[in-house]
Amino acid sequence: MSSTQPRDAPAREMYVDPRFRSAADRFFERFQRRGDGGGAVAAYLHGEKVLDVWAGWRAKDTRWTHDTVTLCFSTGKGVASTVVHRLADRGLVDYDQPVATYWPEFAAAGKERITVRELMSHRAGLHNVREVAPTQKVLLDYRAFADALAAARPDPRRFQGPGYHAVTYGNLVAELAARVTGKDFTTLLKEEVSDPLGAEELWFHVPQESRVRIARVFPTVKPGPMPWSTTGRILSGLPGLRAIAEAGMAEGFDELARSPRAHDAVMPGWNGVFSAPALARMYAAIANDGVLDGNRYLSSERIAQLSETQTRRRDYVLGIRPHWRLGFHPAWLRVERMPRRSVGHYGFGGSGAWADPETGLSLAFVSNRLGNRLQPIADGRMSAIGGAALEAARAAG
């Protein structure tokens, strides 16, 4: 990057630290054909950039370039959570206080004792987006969505274990942060994350002038031969799959994933539009004990808290034990020894980002190709690329 280029401007030239060539090779291997779509990966080690590459196609006839951004779905949960952690670091939020302390209306329907800690580890019992936002109109209306969440009755399964708030999580933490500060969440994201870290391309409501840079996601989000809405109604009536449909199959989600209307709204649970370098910079501060470019972003104590597992119980939505942190999960990588203190968040389709405080490594991978040829949910790209980068960081000492 030239000395005259703004800190938050996308680098126009790719960069590969020789120690991370294997991770770059694994990335480029996955974008050989137009059908692979496009993507980017960026990484920092001890706060220094070691990887910034891109490849493939952002649209049918348009190459992915240095300034391409894309919809990253649940990757945004980690970004939204970081806003709350910044507020907690200044004493404005206490994880063990009831959410209703900051958001009084949230106390309705028996939620008066649900804490911020429980909310941020998916233990609030508010996973059911199909009930809270039964139409696209509610889903796209931030105020209506927040009011519906405040009025909702929590699922009693929350006492048995976490239940992944696939769509609702982002709006819950966004409203919490807004109530604490009196500012809208778009302003908070800019003030608490983008500006202090020089990471502009972290958007939920995408600026109009930047929308030409958004990659076209594909294929169409479709869980089977039937329409999305029909499949959602059927699955929500099946005991073994009901919770997954309730949490993740919001009405009209398939259409919104490819619609410009998604970029007009603030839905931090799923509609984040990011670049890989911006995500990697945010997580670089977490990986580097809260410091980036010589400036303290989060306290050492806060970084230690982020790595703590909040619950080891089985998630009643996902059916696994995600070992939720405060707004994050561990990095899941193709390595023999997993990074146990890592924090991050992956998204539908395969994008994601994470930090590993043990090695000082952060990495972000974004792509407009959802999953693989068999299903759109996810694939092994992040796992393989991230695994190669982690091994390189460990070897670098």
Score class of each variant (00 low, 15 high):
M1F: 11
R12P: 01
E13R: 13
E13Q: 14
Y15C: 01
D17N: 14
D17P: 02
P18I: 07
R19E: 14
D25V: 13
R26Y: 08
F28R: 13
G35K: 12
D36H: 15
G37K: 07
G37Y: 09
G38M: 08
G38D: 09
A40Y: 05
L45A: 07
H46W: 00
H46C: 07
G47F: 01
K49A: 11
L51Y: 03
D52Q: 12
D52N: 15
V53I: 14
G56A: 11
W57R: 09
K60I: 13
H66G: 04
D67Q: 10
L71N: 09
T75E: 01
G76N: 08
R86T: 11
A88V: 11
A88L: 05
D94C: 10
D96G: 14
Q97Y: 03
P98Q: 10
A100S: 15
A100N: 09
P104H: 09
P104Y: 08
A107D: 07
R113L: 12
R113V: 12
S121F: 04
S121K: 00
R123T: 09
L126H: 06
N128H: 14
V129E: 02
A133R: 00
A133F: 03
Q136H: 02
V138K: 02
L140V: 05
Y142K: 13
A152T: 08
A152F: 09
P154K: 08
G163L: 07
G163P: 01
A166Y: 01
V167H: 00
N171Q: 12
E175F: 01
L176W: 06
L176G: 04
V180K: 02
D184R: 11
D195T: 15
G198F: 04
G198C: 08
A199M: 08
H205C: 13
R211P: 03
V212I: 08
I214S: 08
A215R: 03
V217K: 03
P219K: 11
W228S: 03
S229W: 06
S229G: 14
G237H: 13
A247V: 11
A247E: 04
E251W: 12
F253C: 06
E255T: 15
R258K: 14
V266D: 10
V266Q: 04
V266Y: 03
P277A: 11
P277V: 11
A280T: 07
R281D: 02
M282W: 00
A285H: 02
L292W: 01
L298H: 00
L298Y: 05
L298K: 03
E301T: 14
R302N: 06
R302D: 02
R302I: 15
E308D: 12
E308Q: 15
T309R: 12
Q310S: 10
T311M: 03
R312C: 11
R313V: 01
D315H: 09
H323V: 00
L326D: 01
F328R: 00
H329G: 15
P330W: 01
L333P: 12
R337K: 15
P339N: 09
G344Y: 00
H345Y: 12
F348G: 00
G349K: 01
G349F: 01
G350W: 04
G350A: 10
A353E: 05
A355I: 05
E358L: 10
E358S: 14
G360M: 01
L361M: 08
L361E: 05
L361R: 02
S362C: 07
A364T: 02
R369Y: 09
L370H: 10
G371Q: 07
N372E: 12
R373H: 13
A378N: 14
M382I: 06
G387L: 00
G387V: 03
A389Q: 06
A392W: 02
A393N: 01
A396F: 10
